[in-house]
Design a protein around this nucleic acid. Structure first.
Lengths: 350, 350
DNA sequence: TTTTGACACTCTCAACGGGAGAGTGCTAAA
DNA sequence: TTTAGCACTCTCCCGTTGAGAGTGTCAAAA
C-alpha cells in the first residue's frame, strides 16, 4: 500500500508552512509562491521542497491557485482550519480596549448606543460593522400611558423593561375623555406590569374581554399592539450597519457588479438577518467564512459575530463583514470585546 | 464687425437640434454625432450642416465632446437650459398616480411613512430616493410624562404637536417618588402646553428657576432636553435614503472609486443635508444639475427635490439623486406628485 | 449666404503579438 | 527525502495595427 498524505494528518512542517502562507496572504493580499515562502519562514527549505508540500496542501483542499503559475491562496476550508486550530488570537492592547469603552457611553439611549457601536466597529476594523437590534422576545411591560391627541386618536406609550420605549397612535371608534384614558392606564398598570408579554398576552386579552370596561377597546388594542410590536416592531428583525464603503476598497470585491449584489443583500436585510439569527443561536463568537454562509454573494466575504447580552439575557448579535482575507487575529478580539462592553453598557445597573 | 453667433440667442433650428441631442443622449447614453442627429430629426439637413450647428452649441458651452471624434453630450449648462426652457413635463399617468397614493398609507406612523416614500421613489424612478426627516423647528409641547424607571432614572416622554414623540432617559441627582414626578408632569402640562418651544424655552426655564419646586431639576432638564432635541434630535438633520444600489448600474459612475466617494458622502450625511437645506428654502421643486450642487463628487449627478408640507407648514424635503443623464420629464412629476401626496397623507385631519 | 459633399485627420476600442516575470510540475541527482 | 535544474504555463504590460466613428474644413453647389 503506497504511502499517501491525502486524508492523513498533516506533518508539523506542512502546518507551519500553511500557517505562514495564510498569514502572508492576509497581510499582502497577493497569491504567495514557493520562493516567497522559502524566504519568509525560518525553516531552511528550498522552494522545490515547499512546492511539494504545497501540492499536498492543495490536494487536501486547503489552498488553491487562482491560475496555473501564480502562487496559492487559502480556500474557505483553509481559512477554517487556520481560524480553528492555528491562529493565536491577539490580546487586545489596553489602549484599544479603552477606546472601545470610552465610545460606549452607558448614559446614551439604546438606539444611539447601538449606532455608535456599529460605526465604531467599522472604524477600528476598517470593515463593515453590523449590530442587530435587540430582540424584544421576553420583554415585559413596565409602564403604560394613554395620551389623548384628538377626539379619535390616542397615543399609546409602552415602556418595556429595559430602556426601550414604544410609541403608537391608534384610531378609536369613539372619543374617550382624558379621565377615561387615565382610568384605563391605571388599570393596565396595576394589573399587567412586569408580566412577560409573550407568555401572557392571550391571558391578558381574555381578561380584558371579560372586564367589559368601556375603554376596553383601547386597552385591548394597546396589548395587541404591544404584541405586534414584539413580533414585527423596531425591536425585531432589523440591524444597523456602518462603514459599508470600507468594502469598496477591498481588492477582491472591486468589481461593480459584485458590489452591487452585495449592497443589495445589505439593504434587502432578509438574508443578513437570517445569518445573524443563526449566529445568535450559536451563543458565542461565530465565524462564517466565504461559502459557509450559504449565500453566493458572500462567497468572498467572512462574517465575524458575537452575541451581546445584558442582565444575563442575550439581546442580539453584533459583528463585522469583510473579505475572507481579513486579519482574524485582530478582528476576533475586537468583536468579542465590543460585544462584552456593549453588554455592560446596557446593563440596567449602570 | 464679423457676425458671430456666440453669446447671441440661438436660432430656432439650433434649439431644435440641441433638444433632439439631449433627448437622444438621455435615452441612449451614448455621445451623439452629427450623422445620428441628421437621421433622427425631421429637419432635412446634412451631417455637415449639423456639425456647424454643433460647433456653435459647443462654443456656447451647451454641449461638449468627451474626446475629439466622438459625438457630443450635454454639459451641466446644457441640461440646465434643457430643463428650464425646452423640456415638456409629462403629466403623470393616472395609474402611476394611484400607485403612489396607495403606497402612502395615512394611517401609518410618520417614520414608516417616510421610509415607504423613499423606497417608493427609488423604485419607480430607478434612482436613489431621499427623504429628509421633518424639521422640528416650530414644535410645541402637547404632553409631558415623567416615568420613574429606577431610583435615579427618569424617563421623560415629550409629545410634540404632530405625531412626533420623543423619549429620553435622564439621571437624577436624588431619587424622586412616583408621586413627585406625577406632580411635576401635571405642573408642566398645565403651564407649558401648546407653547412654541423655540420661542419660550428661555421663559420657561426662568420660570422654573423661580418656582424652586423640589422636582424643579427634573422639569428643568426636561425642558432643556426638549430644546436640545429640537436642535440636534432625530427630528432635525437627518434623512432616509433608499435604492442607492440603483446608482451602481449607471454607466457614468461605474468606477469603484467614484462610487466609493459618492457613498461616503451619503453616509457622512453632512453635505447632502446641506444641499437639502438649500432645497427646502427654495420652496418649490428644485433641480441641482451636476456641478451646480457645489460638491465635486456630485459632478456626474443631478438632484431633484421638492419640499413637502402638511397643515400648511413645510416639514421637509424629498427627492431623488441620479446621474445628470436622467429622464427629467419623468422624474420631475414623480417627485412633485410624491411630495404633494406625502403632504396630504401627513395632514392631521386624515 | 447657406448648405453640402468630400476628404484628411483624430481618437477610441478591440484584437493581436511578443517579452518579461513569476511560479509551477517533473525529473534526475545529491 | 531534499534539491537543483529545466521546460512549461499563465498573467500582465506594452506597442502595433486596423476598423469605426466622428470631426473640422474647404471648395463647390444651391
Amino acid at each position: 500500500m503506497p504511502k499517501s498524505k491525502t486524508h492523513k494528518e498533516l506533518s508539523e512542517r506542512s502546518v507551519h508552512l500553511f500557517k505562514a502562507l495564510v498569514e502572508h496572504y492576509i497581510n499582502q493580499g497577493q497569491p504567495v509562491g514557493s520562493r516567497t515562502l522559502a524566504r519568509e519562514t525560518d525553516l531552511d527549505l528550498s522552494p522545490a521542497t515547499i512546492r511539494n508540500v504545497m501540492a499536498d496542501l492543495e490536494d487536501m483542499g486547503l489552498i488553491t491557485s487562482p491560475h496555473t503559475s501564480s502562487g496559492r491562496i487559502p480556500t474557505a476550508k483553509g481559512y477554517r482550519f487556520f481560524v480553528d486550530s492555528l491562529m493565536r488570537i491577539d490580546k487586545l492592547d489596553s489602549a484599544e480596549m479603552k477606546r472601545i469603552a470610552s465610545e460606549l457611553d452607558p448614559g446614551a439611549d439604546i438606539k444611539s448606543l447601538l449606532e455608535r457601536t456599529s460605526s465604531m466597529l467599522s472604524e477600528i476594523t476598517h470593515l463593515a460593522g453590523i449590530v442587530m437590534l435587540p430582540r424584544t422576545e421576553h420583554k415585559s411591560l413596565q409602564h403604560v400611558e394613554f395620551v389623548k391627541l384628538s377626539d379619535n386618536r390616542v397615543l399609546v406609550i409602552l415602556v418595556m423593561s429595559d430602556r426601550e420605549v414604544q410609541n403608537r397612535i391608534i384610531q378609536t371608534a369613539k372619543p374617550y375623555s382624558t379621565a377615561e384614558l387615565q382610568r384605563a392606564s391605571n388599570y393596565v398598570n396595576s394589573h399587567f406590569i412586569g408580566k412577560d408579554l409573550n407568555n401572557v398576552r392571550e391571558d391578558i386579552l381574555r381578561e380584558l374581554q371579560k372586564a367589559k370596561d368601556d375603554v376596553n377597546h383601547v386597552m385591548q388594542t394597546a396589548i395587541e399592539m404591544a404584541g405586534s410590536a414584539i413580533i414585527k416592531g423596531d425591536g425585531h428583525g432589523d440591524y444597523l450597519m456602518a462603514g459599508q464603503t470600507n468594502l469598496m476598497e477591498v481588492a477582491e470585491l472591486c468589481d461593480v457588479d459584485k458590489l452591487k449584489r452585495l449592497f443589495e443583500i445589505f439593504s434587502q436585510k432578509r438574508d443578513i438577518l437570517h445569518l445573524l439569527d443563526q449566529a445568535i443561536h450559536a451563543r458565542g463568537l461565530q465565524i462564517f467564512i466565504g461559502e459557509e454562509s450559504g449565500y453566493e454573494v458572500l462567497d468572498a466575504c467572512s462574517v465575524v459575530t458575537s452575541p451581546y447580552e445584558a442582565d444575563g439575557e442575550i439581546l442580539g448579535v453584533l459583528g463585522v463583514i469583510g473579505p475572507t482575507r481579513m486579519p482574524y487575529e485582530r478582528v476576533i478580539p475586537i468583536v468579542d470585546v465590543t460585544a462584552k462592553m456593549l453588554g455592560t453598557a446596557l446593563n440596567s445597573d449602570s
